[in-house]
Design a protein around this nucleic acid. Sequence first.
DNA 1: CACCGTATATCAGATAACGAGGTAGCCCGA
DNA 2: TCGGGCTACCTCGTTATCTGATATACGGTG
Lengths: 113, 113
Amino acid sequence: MEGRIKGQLLKGTTTLLVLTVLRDGELYGYEIAQRIRERSGGAFVPSEGSLYPALHSLEAAGALEASWQASDRGPRRRYYKITKTGLGMLKEHAQEWATFSLGMARAVGGADQ
Amino acid sequence: MEGRIKGQLLKGTTTLLVLTVLRDGELYGYEIAQRIRERSGGAFVPSEGSLYPALHSLEAAGALEASWQASDRGPRRRYYKITKTGLGMLKEHAQEWATFSLGMARAVGGADQ
DNA sequence: CACCGTATATCAGATAACGAGGTAGCCCGA
DNA sequence: TCGGGCTACCTCGTTATCTGATATACGGTG
């Protein structure tokens, strides 16, 4: 599918996307980016410059717990696991997204088709 | 009444919102903000600091044509009208929003499963 | 005259994405 | 054994644009 999204529209969604993919299990950074790309149908390809700072920020906020683990093929990986705090944050962000999405649907949706 | 959205999520949506409300007719700035607030169900209340620069930018890009008109009660108003270029831009932004929205729906699913 | 609602405009500050650059481990082929 | 490619992490400067504060000015009301 064509049309990769980047730029301003993505602002504020990285946190929600990261927490969402981590709800299903422990993942490392590189893998998180791949999951987001897959789950969005290729629409989102988080850049490293936005993903890693976001992970550090979420860890500092207590939303994620991280640990280094060796890989049998390649450099070591930093695995992230969502915490209770993170689950609460996920719920908040999901709710905020729902409100935002609904507002946009009302404002621009249907009207143009 | 849902919470008002502000902050990062709004980045990049002002252009689409402005062009959308102007498709239905000529409006002045203050009125554009009110329409967006109404149509979004109160979720979006564009601040002056984001709306006016956006209008100037759209006018400079040829998406809008503007003219000063006196008001019988209050200060003069600057009316904005969407151009052919603006209609094309609206179509592009609406398409981008659709892709973005679909990607989010796929990635985060039906809110919280 | 003071105040409020209307109406436009601009500014400093904050946020967070992007691309580019760097480090490093492992595998494969020349 | 050297180089290139993939994996995997990290950081930096640049860019876009939203927020809240501040400013100007008109008209009606108390």
